[in-house]
Amino acid sequence: MKWDISDIDSWKTDDFPLGAVIPEAGNSHYYRTGGWRSERPVRNVETCTDCLICWIDCPDTAIHVADEKIAADWLDLDHCKGCGICANECPVEAITMVPEGCELPEVR
């Protein structure tokens, strides 16, 4: 079930859910925070030890894991907002934050 909010701008008071709940779990996925990013994390696959600390600490679950290792397409650019927590917490400094260009094609 997807909570359909496509015409939310025309909703009346009674149309909103009681007590401002969001009646669908996990739908923050639909809200793209990638556009907030001014720096992008770049991971050095040579030095990364797959300790998964960055995966645990990322506040936006923007780091993907496959088979208990950092995934090849590791970064969800729709949601990574460039906070730098992963780079800061990586124990072997395998992540560097690099300035983001002005083009962010992944952000719609």
Binding site: P17, L18, G19, A20, V21, I22, P23, A25, G26
Partner: peptide, 14 residues
């Protein structure tokens, strides 16, 4: 909108 009603999961405090 009970949080413990996991069949009808909701977010509170939005």
């Amino acid at each position: 909108n009970a949080l413990l009603d996991i069949d009808n999961a909701v977010s509170h405090g939005c």
